[in-house]
Amino acid sequence: MREAVAVFRKQILDTRKNRAVLIQFIMFPIMTIVMNSAIKVDDMPEFFYLKLFSIMYMAMAPIVSMSSIISEEKEKGTLRALMMSNVRPASYLAGVGVYDFQCCLIGTMLMSKTCGLDDGPWWRYLCVIMLGLVISIVLGASIGVLAKDQMAATSLAVPVMCLFTFLPMMAQFNDTIAKVAKFFYTQQLYLALEDINNVKIGTEGLIIIAANAIVILAFFVLAFRKEGLTNE
């Protein structure tokens, strides 16, 4: 526990000066707040920007930040120093993961409250986003574990992130894409937020999300067994 807390604290200090990661946490909340207050189009669905950017944020920020943080530590050898100091991989991943989750959650709370979501639906909205964040964090961690350095992490994270982030958006305009997109957890969570004042996930949605979570967790386990946390 002490080790996980130390990693969490380290991450707070480090991210303040790490613009590449910091921007992931603040970009979408700022965009949502700005666009929601500045661009109003007639017949625009309620909370249009919040729904769209929440899903993008939920997929993009954790995948990019987790993979970037872990791969940087692997590349620079700080992770090796931590492991030698008796920080277990689970403690390290918990420290970084909880930090990442917390930052994304703060961003989500900020953007949803600024957009004026009422308390009742807000809690259900947060639950949906938190579920997505956890899956995205595991996916980001898998990429970080698999990549030997930051460059490799970026080249892996970008296509994965694009796939999970943009499919729900494109599915709105193309039925064929929608048929494929429905098998992605991001799309199911987007559909759950369709009526944001009455958030619901159906049985099919739950099964797809659970299947996604299992596949991503299995991917993480395989990546961890193959590469471990240090470039050995």
């Binding site: 807390v5 620079k76 700080t78 090796r80």
Partner: peptide
């Protein structure tokens, strides 16, 4: 190859490990 946290100060670098120990 045991790197340092380049963005952290000397004190902060040691503090991370002091917390662990």
């Amino acid at each position: 190859d045991f790197g340092l946290y380049e963005r952290l100060t000397c004190y902060q670098n040691l503090k991370v490990f002091a917390d662990i120990y």
